[in-house]
Design a protein around this nucleic acid. Structure first.
Lengths: 346, 346
DNA sequence: AAGATTTAAGTTACCGGTAACGCAAAAACG
DNA sequence: CGTTTTTGCGTTACCGGTAACTTAAATCTT
């Protein structure tokens, strides 16, 4: 009975110490393996720890200012986009393996939400922050500087990062894709994406893409920016919308593979042959691509690795190791067979 | 210069108070809007807060034991499975809207990892915990009881939850699917899933499914349990594996839609007609289903809502409102057209 | 105008750990 | 065997807030 009621009360270090007949400090030393105690005392304290079910209060030790926190704040736009789910998975697995915890923030791509989230999460004295994207509200930047903690900006490489940055150069990657499609013979190309999904990276990517296409004598005739998430169905209806108002599009470049898949489904469902009647290119080389009947033309970006590297940079900085604060993880064009081959067009 | 160097130092309430020429306590009252100060003082303090860029230290206030934490620990098996990404999104959006933060734990379906994660996250004095699944290590359960904080177990309804539970009855849902497929005329049915993905719920579901199938005169002839994630490609190669050793399977029931889609791709790629030659049924009614040429036979479970409801139960409990501690969010069979209609078999 | 009440503060103690320092007993040393 | 060193442990102070209490001045009463 007495045992039962005591269960709901948190056991503090003092209680453990009292039970073991030693001082709080001795108990603290035992728990941290600091040395400075006899084996007999150690055993006694540990026994009481077990018996009382003592759990240390990290709030107290971090608060005392003597230890750094094990929290890392991670902001991600949304999880409906598989890409970011993969990135987050990479981050959390790596952080978790080194005893750190992820405090999640789904910031929906808006700087205001990000700013609010940053304010809140900073008040918890995190060890560091991993932020998706490179555009932040001015007040957010000020808070981040004041906080003086490690910060990793991911996704879109930032040549002048707040602190560290890892990702790819979306302009270059977009350029490569544009050059490839022009090289395949396409001249009249459309783009289908969403407006609020990684707004900046997608915009940068499209800029690079457009430059390459125009440089090769083609044109990006239409940009369709849906107010939706970058998922299967928006790709489907976005394509419907696009083709309803345009008839001369030869190839469509989508914001990601999920949208590309949705678009391809629309095309085939409406009697169009891919790539015979229309070319399709996606982005991200998502898992879905591995089971498609035709290999989707896409751009491979190692998302899981991106998350892992971001976490590694954070961990290295936290443990005081020297860190390269700028890492390009690269991309690779997947030619696929949803666009015509340049040879076939001779 | 002096300004710059001071930027990296954290500003404490005492510093604000000193700058404003008032006591720490007065500054504290102003910040919390407690009353007990003049308008003049309030303005003065707030001005200093702005000027110094003061950010409260929540560690301190929560630690002082006077406020409850705004952290909620959320354990999720993995994010490679879209289902859980949706659940997490639902949870975090709802929690975030009410000023709470998600501390993520990817526990990979193992009770040991979950136990370790629980130990760590409890040491941060969270306001509550949301856990996926209903099976926990004995020591984890003990810690959870001792912590005496709100706990929501999600995914698989738990009729005797630790505290609160929300999800669906996977046995019943599996049973419904089994009955449906038998009703379509199938007798020789196979199952393809993964072993460590929501092990318990999937197992329970399969048990219900098997019971219904056998009750209707059919048999679940093969269970293929891959050691992989429940994603597209495992569905593809799992199906290949299954069909290599069996020729009389009439219908395959998959652990989720992603696997089902992968399986369907294998079948069509190998000249089989779906549902002409083989029936395909999935689970979860995932977004991919919305763009498939044939509506996938599946079971709709409102995952985003599941997350939201879990968060709502947590928030209600935290604000002291009365809470129903057991909520069935229901499921709905999607007949689809990847299985034969019973009429067609007449 | 003297007493009662309200307002606007300040003071003290505490949350649960840990750093820094102190000190007696035991061990090592010459 | 006396001195130095080490070992083992206790004491004190502090982190940054907040509850509870106190106090002095301002305002209201009759």
């Amino acid at each position: 009975m007495a045992d039962k009621s005591s269960k709901t009360n948190k056991v503090s270090l003092s209680q453990v110490a009292k039970a073991a007949g030693v001082s709080k400090m001795t108990a603290s030393r035992v728990l941290r393996g600091d040395g400075g105690y006899s084996e007999k005392t150690r055993a006694l304290v540990m026994q009481k720890v077990d018996k009382l079910g003592y759990l240390p209060n990290r709030l107290a030790s971090v608060f005392a200012g003597d230890q750094i926190s094990t929290f890392v704040g991670v902001s991600i736009p949304d999880l409906g986009n598989e890409i970011f789910a993969q990135v987050l998975e990479g981050i959390d697995r790596k952080l978790g393996a080194f005893g750190h915890q992820t405090v999640l923030g789904l910031t929906q791509h808006t700087p205001e939400e990000e700013e609010n989230w940053i304010r809140t999460v900073l008040s918890w004295q995190p060890a560091g922050l991993i932020l998706t994207g490179r555009s932040h509200a001015p007040r957010a930047i000020e808070m981040l500087r004041n906080a003086a903690i490690p910060i990793v900006e991911i996704w879109d490489l930032n040549s002048s990062p707040l602190d560290m940055s890892v990702g790819i150069n979306h302009f270059d990657a977009g350029f490569d894709m544009g050059r490839y499609l022009v090289g395949c013979g396409y001249r009249n190309i459309a783009y289908v994406g969403t407006s609020h999904d990684t707004a900046n990276a997608a915009t940068t990517r499209l800029a690079g893409f457009t430059k390459a296409v125009e440089g090769g004598g083609g044109r990006v005739t239409r940009h369709l920016c849906l107010h939706d998430t970058a998922a299967y169905y928006p790709g489907f209806y976005g394509t419907e919308q696009l083709l309803a108002s345009t008839t001369d599009v030869e190839c469509i470049f989508y914001q990601n593979d999920a949208m590309a898949f949705g678009g391809m489904q629309y095309c085939t469902a409406n009697g169009m042959d891919v790539p015979g009647d229309i070319g399709i290119a996606g982005w991200g080389n998502l898992p879905i691509a591995s089971v498609m009947p035709k290999r989707l033309t896409s751009m491979h970006v190692p998302h899981l690795k991106l998350g892992q590297v971001a976490a590694e940079m954070m961990l290295a900085r936290l443990s005081g190791e020297p860190v390269v604060n700028y890492r390009d993880i690269g991309f690779k064009l997947i030619p696929g067979s949803t666009v015509k081959n340049v040879m076939a067009r001779g």
